[in-house]
């Protein structure tokens, strides 16, 4: 019994704000991004993001990739948007894109046109997308990128355009 109480207490303390179990019970009306990091001080950072609906339908569909860039103190410094219909979108992060910051973090979200949203409404009502993505780093242009997949805390892009 003591063990059970301990486990229940741990579960409560250790629960994430949006646990896997809760996703079965509660629909999230937004898309979720991992938090990624960039470093431009003698390094290049590249990000590979997914066009989630295109991947789900196995067919190219145009979307707007939206990136929110934060500086080392976590303040929002720039928003970058690009259109693409590729399954995977590649963004080489520059100081221009990061708002001049040499290192910090960013999120990735996607937006589809109203026509697409209406066309696939039934499907989109059933799922929420999450953006895990892949970030590559290198400090030698002649070398390859060392990639890591998204792993950090999830961020939610609410309809009121506020990052949580």
């Amino acid at each position: 019994m003591k063990n059970l109480i301990q486990k229940l207490r741990n579960f409560n303390i250790n629960s994430r704000p949006h646990s896997f179990a809760l996703t079965k019970l509660k629909q999230i009306d937004s898309d979720i991004s991992d938090l990624f990091t960039y470093i431009l001080d003698d390094y290049e950072t590249i990000f590979i993001g997914e066009n989630s609906l295109a991947l789900m339908l196995a067919s190219p569909i145009e979307c707007v990739h939206i990136f929110h860039f934060f500086d080392k103190s976590g303040s929002l410094i720039n928003v970058h948007e690009t259109k693409s219909s590729d399954f995977h979108f590649k963004l080489l992060i520059t100081k221009y894109i990061s708002g001049g910051s040499k290192f910090g973090s960013f999120t990735h979200h996607i937006r589809y046109s109203n026509i697409i949203m209406i066309q696939y409404k039934k499907l989109l009502d059933e799922v929420s997308f999450q953006h895990r993505g892949y970030t590559g780093y290198r400090n030698n242009l002649n070398s390859g990128f060392s990639y890591v997949h998204g792993n950090f805390v999830e961020c939610i892009f609410l309809k009121i355009k506020k990052i949580n």
Binding site: L55, L123, V127
Partner: peptide, 23 residues
């Protein structure tokens, strides 16, 4: 450089199993 890909279920936040099945 070595890394593993996310499984297709990771493209979805909720309803992972159904999302992966459709994809």
């Amino acid at each position: 450089s070595v890394e593993h890909n996310h499984p297709p279920s990771e493209y979805f936040y909720n309803n992972k199993i159904d999302g992966q099945k459709i994809l």
